[in-house]
Design a protein around this nucleic acid. Structure first.
Lengths: 238, 238
DNA sequence: CGCAGCGGGTACGTTTCCGTACTGAAAAAG
DNA sequence: CTTTTTCAGTACGGAAACGTACCCGCTGCG
């Protein structure tokens, strides 16, 4: 079969699930892009310019309030797309979104995405389910923030990042982990120390490597897993 | 103007915003209903049977995990509708939803709502924006859970409930407030005591009355307000 | 009216995490 | 190679909230 804009090499799961007959609405507008860590994708209260389909790397979605309190409400990787408000018919970003772990993928201009969604019921349903998956993630984050101990939250974060990475090495400083979790940097250091002592991870300056993933899952308990299984249910098991 | 199914007396804000030409898709399927406190509207992992447009009362949306940790991720009153997953094309409830404060309103069968949304772009956009508003609320809850002190979270909750009530009296036990906030019952008692001492509220057994709303807003700080102003932006200022 | 049960007040030791801050080591910059 | 910066380790007092538990007083019911 001939496709004017090849889907070959596309590894973003959401792009992959786009039906062939809808591909022409999306594919031609995709622009390959690489992104460094800390690269900003969305700024609160500003228009969203592009939606990013990551294939490598992890983006953080961080809620901010008027007094500059901030906390991560979700992460996005190869399984989804940034710019959830666009899917909901809103052109403004609510949250701060930026690359937590550098990577690459494709992006599409906001109006192209909106146009495509408006034109195809199938596309709209697909993106809505992706957005629903993100909502579930946010809700579980609220649960973890309110109920879980620092150690459990750290484990949860590591697992979610690990899910979205090809390597076991997470290139992140304690400082940034602390911002994500909304806790002290020193608290993260101590918690990671505990993980290291139990052989769950190894660390180097600015890097943390997952060694015993099942062990980390044990620490996270049921604070990890719901968004992941729900996303499977929503978008199919692949 | 003649309307086969009168909109007279409809005080749910979302229903109010439905365009006249869309009303026939919704109005005829609405069923008036009164609901006692604790009445269950949605059960996790079960199909959603109806969407509820409240006019009086407050519903709580509570996230639950496999180990039965639970915390409220949002509240819904006259400004919105329950059954957000339906809007997202998902027929299953993710969260536990029940009336926290008894009330009344209308409900519509899930498939009728889905059908209406599928048939009208305007309706779909309206409901999507409502869902987006709820997402914002959930994200702010995650922020408050991670960053705010018990006293601030309590203030936030009281304000959100108060917004959705006609009376200043909130008929709720400390026990239930504790479940919402994910804290100890005793902790709520002490916090409320502090409010009472400062003249922010008065209390009776099983009831709490808002006296000094601006004072409570001061306590909540910026943990309160974002979802409210964003909803205005999304759905218009009325 | 008396009693049972629910809701609320209070207490106490303990855990968790914070705020702050100092230090040393590793990497980056010059 | 030296300087500067960033990152991690560690400490300490204190605040916040926890788990638990006991008691009392409304309130509703028999």
């Amino acid at each position: 079969m001939l496709e004017s804009h090849a889907r070959v090499g596309i590894r973003n799961r959401l792009l992959h699930k786009i039906a062939l007959e809808d591909w022409d609405l999306i594919g031609p507008h995709l622009e390959p892009i690489t992104m460094k860590e800390r690269q900003v994708l969305e700024v609160p209260a500003k228009p969203i310019t592009h939606a990013y389909f990551l294939e490598i790397g992890v983006a953080s979605v961080v809620a901010v309030d008027a007094e500059d309190h901030r906390i991560e409400v979700g992460v996005i990787g190869y399984e989804g797309v940034t710019g959830v408000p666009l899917i909901m018919g809103d052109s403004r970003a609510q949250h701060s979104t930026y690359m937590q772990i550098g990577g690459a993928g494709h992006r599409i201009a906001a109006d192209q995405l909106c146009g495509a969604i408006a034109r195809s019921d199938g596309l709209r349903l697909l993106f809505l389910k992706s957005a629903q998956g993100f909502m579930i993630q946010t809700a579980q984050t609220a649960l973890a923030n309110g109920r879980a101990k620092l150690e459990q939250r750290l484990a949860r974060w590591l697992l979610m990042a690990h899910d979205r990475m090809t390597s076991d090495a997470v290139p992140l400083t304690h400082e940034f982990l602390a911002v994500m979790l909304g806790v002290r940097r020193a608290g993260v250091t101590v918690a990671i120390h505990g993980f290291e002592r139990r052989g769950l991870v190894t660390t180097r300056r600015g890097e943390l490597t997952v060694v015993d993933r099942p062990g980390i899952e044990l620490v996270a308990g049921s604070f990890y897993g719901t968004p992941e299984s729900e996303l499977k249910r929503l978008l199919g098991s692949k």
